[in-house]
């Protein structure tokens, strides 16, 4: 069976264009203009089967949102391949992407910024579908819109209102209805619950899981919250500084994390149920700048285990069985695993 989404060696670099003076540097007494490049995503590969939920976790600046938005083709990828149901869409222009948009939609993070404040709710929800069927089918679209609003827990009269009349959770429901309007097989959800209160967060997560069962949706779920990820994901990828450092089935990752960064994330996550097995890996320092990546392993500047090999050789993701892979030299030299 072809995967719903297949991503191979995805890279995303952004060229910063600050003023000339900021770029000016002197090397050996001669002026030079440096090109400032943010290495947001550095060769990420994964695939999502139909109906599967893959979560990407990591801290701010790890490139997880950029991966999402590059797959949704909000950004054009710098290199790598993106396939939707086997169809390579990496080079597609706007016209050829349109049919692909019916297979892949997106839910955004900020319930306030992701809805146009000057559009009525029913127009917001209908927008993706209208692009697919054309303005001729407006009546059908209107029926479908009402059904969608009802499905996500809103009602018909809500359709005539503007976004500012809704609470954060309700707005997120509107965003979900918009994404569902074209019956996509894949929904890319970029931190869909992180701006919501915890009680509302549970409502939205339950809705997303119900919709998955009902429509057989696959999710690419972006989050920084491990407890949310544990609840919703089938498989989890951990990102750091634009690299995928570990990927594993959910339970595997929580029970037997291998990469030191995954282990640190798990031990740092606050919990109201302190009974959890807790290996204490406390990280010092902060994430290096994506403008100049460290040599070798991206994590070595904060890793309590790092040794000289880590500065020279960049580890690649290697399969360690049971569907788990990690990019760490500790896998070759497990005897060093005691900080």
């Amino acid at each position: 069976m072809t995967a719903m989404l297949d991503v191979e060696g995805l890279e995303q670099r952004f060229h910063l264009n600050p003023g000339l003076l900021d770029r000016l540097s002197f090397e050996g007494g001669r002026p030079r203009l440096k090109d400032l490049v943010v290495h947001a995503v550095n060769g990420v590969s994964f695939s999502i089967a139909k109906g599967e939920v893959l979560a990407l976790v990591g801290e701010s600046g790890c490139g997880k949102s950029t991966v999402a938005k590059t797959i949704a083709r909000i950004y054009d990828p710098s290199s790598g391949r993106i396939r939707i149901e086997g169809e390579d869409i990496t080079e597609y222009d706007h016209a050829r992407l349109l049919p692909v948009r019916a297979k892949m939609q997106m839910i955004f993070q900020d319930p306030f910024a992701s809805l146009n404040p000057r559009q009525k709710v029913r127009d917001i929800v209908a927008e993706p579908l209208l692009q697919q069927v054309g303005d001729g089918a407006r009546a059908d679209v209107a029926d479908k819109t009402e059904a969608l609003l009802a499905r996500v827990g809103l009602n018909v009269e809500h359709g005539g209102r503007y976004p500012h009349q809704f609470s954060g959770g309700q707005r997120q429901r509107i965003g979900i209805a918009r994404a569902l309007s074209v019956n996509p097989g894949l929904i890319i959800a970029d931190e869909p619950v992180s701006a919501l209160d915890v009680s509302i967060q549970a409502q939205i997560l339950n809705l997303m899981m119900d919709l998955r069962d009902e429509f057989g949706l696959a999710y690419l779920f972006i989050s920084h919250d491990l407890s949310v990820v544990h609840h919703i994901a089938d498989r989890i990828g951990v990102m750091y500084l634009g690299f995928m450092v570990e990927t594993a089935p959910r339970d595997q990752l929580f029970v037997k994390p291998r990469h030191p960064y995954t282990r640190a994330l798990l031990s740092a996550a606050p919990s109201i149920r302190p009974s959890r097995m807790t290996e204490e890996i406390e990280l010092t320092g902060e994430v290096p700048s994506a403008l100049s990546l460290p040599t070798g392993c991206c994590f070595r500047t904060r890793c309590p285990f790092a040794w000289d090999r880590c500065a020279v050789e960049r580890p690649v993701l290697q399969d360690i069985g049971d569907g788990q892979s990690a990019a760490c030299h500790l896998i070759d030299e497990p005897e060093r695993d005691n900080p």
């Binding site: 009680s199 549970a202 407890s227 609840h231 009974s275």
Partner: peptide, 11 residues
């Protein structure tokens, strides 16, 4: 509020 938080031990 407490029950709304996903519990990794009892999914």
């Amino acid at each position: 509020l407490i029950d709304s938080i996903p519990n990794p031990d009892h999914r």
